[in-house]
Write a protein that binds this DNA or RNA. Structure first.
Lengths: 114, 114
DNA sequence: TCCCTATATCGTAATAATACGATAATAGGT
DNA sequence: ACCTATTATCGTATTATTACGATATAGGGA
């Protein structure tokens, strides 16, 4: 009878293979967080919108999506935490744009792995 | 009082913006499915292992991960459905490797968007 | 100071994802 | 036909995510 080995879904998983890729646990976690953040239709739509509308504010995004302001705000928080976007406070509003440095890092990592 | 507009999380989200990126709803769904699939530490570990161990069988993956065979099988199914990997039956076992064509498509799309 | 606008956060209900053990299915050998 | 090895699927408990309405926070006038 094996011990109960269920793990919380986001705990790091360390394979015991003899040869593995050159990715640190921290990088791996950062990568999966970025993948996970865009693995949602609403968040993908937000990022897609930001590509063509850099510098827009939260309200602009709320207008184009069929969800409430509270939910959009929550999604923006997730995208910011994952590193996809960057928000700068402008008066009472917050202006958002893509976090180009992090995105470049993401692409470089993906290119390196695959 | 606004109508209840909560949507199931994976339904396509169509922004009303004047100008959007050249991505069809189907492509968008395929992309988010691929992002979502790798947005999990266990599945990322599986794909990472397959990079260095192409052609390995399910049992090999089960051995290097601290989870049961049933769970690994489930994750492999998700990765296959998303298009990251490809399985070929070899006797009673199934040999897995990366789905290079789909991965190339993914990278091309990401490169195009960002 | 008192509003108005814009965002963020809280609490919560409903849904989805993840993991398990148990069991079914499939291929190959005896 | 039977047994073994390998993988897939089923049913289910637990946890995580997503969405909402309500409320709090912060900036900029009047």
């Amino acid at each position: 009878m094996p011990a109960n080995r269920q793990l919380p879904s986001e705990s790091p998983v360390a394979p015991l293979a003899c040869c593995t890729l050159d990715i640190s646990p921290a990088e791996q976690q950062r990568l999966t967080a970025m993948f996970k953040a865009l693995g949602n239709a609403t968040r993908f739509a937000i990022v897609k919108y930001l590509v063509t509308h850099p510098g827009c504010i939260t309200g602009d995004i709320v207008e184009i999506l069929p969800i409430t302001q509270a939910t959009v705000s929550q999604h923006l928080k997730v995208l910011r935490a994952a590193g996809w976007i960057q928000g700068t406070i402008q008066g009472p509003a917050t202006s958002y744009c893509l976090h180009t440095a992090n995105i470049a890092w993401f692409r470089a990592k993906v290119d390196k792995i695959f």
